[in-house]
Amino acid sequence: MKSQTAKQAFDAAPWTGRVRKYDIVKEATIAVVIVSMLVVLLSLIFSSPDDKQLTFRDWAKTNPTNFYATTVQELAGTSESAGYGPPYNNASAGLNVGPLWLQKWAGVTHPVDVPNDLVITPLTLSVLSAREASALATWKAATPDQQTTWATAYDTAIGDADGNYTAAAPGDYGPVPVLANALTNVAAQGSLDALLLAGGNFYSTDNTKQILFFGDGAYLDDAATAANLQGNTWGMMNETGRYPGQAWLWLYSIWYQIPPFINEESAPFGSNADAYIMFVVLGLTAGLMFAPLIPGLRSIPRVIPLHRKIWKSYYSEENIKRRK
């Protein structure tokens, strides 16, 4: 114990051994110059990634069937957004880690009324044909139960037709087919992006509704798959094209690549994988941050002597053998 105390005192005391010249200002200046040159060189040679943003216009024009079906899901309340839970709505309690229901406890701070905010309000703000305006009026005049009955029946019929609404069996779907067709037209004309963003107002910087709607359909998901950006292929850590991405997120992304988390929705964590992974990463990060205070962890550099490589010349010059 006494020798350990002496060692700590030695480590903390001002250095009294041999020194060498060191020009800190010159070193910093050279570092800035060299790194700047390197940055300019890499930029000139490789440029930077910039895959064009997706739009609702492109979605509705290139895959109107999927856009149409997604619109019906939004009206029926069967989309992912409609059943998401906090912070958007109370449709579910959200994820939990054991007794910790943090998503639920944080509450609905960003309310999104999916059928109205994503479909009905944009249609209300659009110029519609007489038939479309009539369908919208019919929807608004109906009771919530009636609305749900129409939309879910149509959603089921489209699902039975493998997502192809033109092949859906005839039924009593009320104004839903006309509304879905109307929103597809509004989107194809390029109006929906702005309608979802500003909702009829001038200013807005919140893209939440757009992102939620995008996520409910296949357009964004297919593009991410094609770009190798899905969670089980290292997800956000990747970059579009052949550029390096956020490699520093590896400690987060890695858990989605290995059991049991790779099988999202399955035991033992079920749909709570996102929450568990956040806790795991938080724990590991805290471990590294407080490594100096954790017995065992703080001794690893002594046990695995990579420091003999780092200070090889000094140890050699001073003829210092490895300590046990």
Partner: peptide, 10 residues
């Protein structure tokens, strides 16, 4: 350096 104080047991 970790081994810079050879005369004292770590």
């Amino acid at each position: 350096p970790i081994d810079a104080l050879p005369e004292i047991e770590a």
